[in-house]
Design a protein around this nucleic acid. Structure first.
Lengths: 221, 221
DNA sequence: GTTGACAAACTAACTATTTCGTACATAGTG
DNA sequence: CACTATGTACGAAATAGTTAGTTTGTCAAC
């Protein structure tokens, strides 16, 4: 489960009685799950400590207090997801296909990272006040615009897309469709007695999201 | 602020030392604000009690426990919003204009009812488990589909809309665009250092949402 | 290479509050 | 007088955070 980074010093330690990096990571991962599951006030420090290989004292040792731990978990969530997104490559493709790929990728990616979605929801409940103090997160996200901005620019130049749209707003629309798909699945499914998370619905909703964005930016229409 | 229902008995009581209906309503409204603001575990019974004209004792008297109060607040939120939505009239309009009006109305309505949005977010964090036991809420929502379903059907008949779309999925897309606009405004604004809630952005996002839905259902394209 | 000092990593038990919920007593109402 | 509505005070459990002390690693000096 844990691969301690080799090649850092001569001896890769097989079992350390003291393992600051490992302990820190273990706490952070456990806390991330608990916060994503229960929210900031819903998560319990004692519960997190119990699920950790470490102890409550260590949580305070490394993260100061509950809010410090929450912020670390929030940054962790953004980092994990944005790192994954960096793998998307669309440079070679014609703009419409590139945009299609981006939407499909975003849709799938959000779908696969429910904990991230939940953390963002939770942070929005708190009016983004913890995110506010984190330059880390801002940096991670601002670059996420570059991709869609470049695709859009190419699309306008090639005549496939209409001009006058704002890449940030485009990103907003894509996010809305993909985010909502995960964030509101529970209430939506229960209200309408349909499991919106099953493969059939997901495949249709994914197709819809793509069509919606493509038709929106399309030059003809 | 409080209009006690007249015409029920001869005398509308001007000042009652004991006022069960008023007390109940006062508690519910206060609780609704607090839960919307802080979530289920974040809200404090003592805090709610303090903001009430009444006392903590009365909360337990009328709502049993914290979860009972939360459920009442959740139902209250859905009821308030769906009651407002019932005012929308689109029967006379040609389908594209009817759909436009529906999207604009939903967009504005969500925008004006942030507390409702927050309650739905909170309930989704809890995997919709409280909503599950509430037939009240299900009933309120299922009828919300009728409107959009009827517009869509008329649109297909008139040749304005393409066939083969699912009204529930259409409702999903509209909801996504309008819901996200409120739910994720905080984090989005802070990450990109733009106030997405100001009038200019809102007006553009609203226009985008309408165009997106109309282009999506359009027969040509 | 052994030692000893110092810092980092870690353990266990404890505390001060907060927070939900309740008993008990009282006042209005029909 | 029975029943509903309400005020006051209290209690038990949960919860964030701490105090005090122990073990482990590092590294320079001998």
């Amino acid at each position: 489960m844990s691969g301690p980074k080799l090649l850092r010093k001569d001896r890769p330690p097989p079992k350390r009685p003291q393992d600051p990096d490992g302990t820190r990571r273990d706490i952070l991962e456990t806390a991330s799950r608990e916060f994503a599951m229960n929210g900031l006030s819903g998560a319990r420090i004692d519960e997190i400590a119990a699920r950790t290989k470490s102890s409550k004292r260590m949580i305070y040792y490394y993260f100061g207090d509950k809010e410090g731990l929450y912020l670390a978990a929030l940054e962790n969530a953004y980092r994990t997801v944005r790192d994954g997104e960096a793998k998307l490559e669309t440079d070679g493709l014609p703009p419409p296909q590139a945009l299609r790929k981006l939407v499909e990728f975003t849709f799938d990616h959000h779908h696969e990272h429910e904990d991230f979605i939940r953390m963002v929801m939770i942070e929005n409940i708190h009016h983004g006040q913890y995110l506010e103090g984190s330059d880390v997160i801002r940096r991670l996200n601002v670059t996420a615009i570059d991709n869609i901005a470049s695709i859009y620019r190419r699309g306008v130049e090639s005549g496939d897309f209409r001009a006058g749209l704002d890449p940030l707003e485009l990103h907003w629309q894509v996010s809305a469709l993909c985010f909502f798909n995960v964030s509101n699945r529970a209430t939506f499914s229960k209200i309408f007695s349909r499991d919106m998370g099953d493969v059939e619905h997901q495949s249709r909703l994914r197709k819809n999201a793509v069509e919606m964005v493509l038709r929106f930016v399309s030059a003809q229409g």
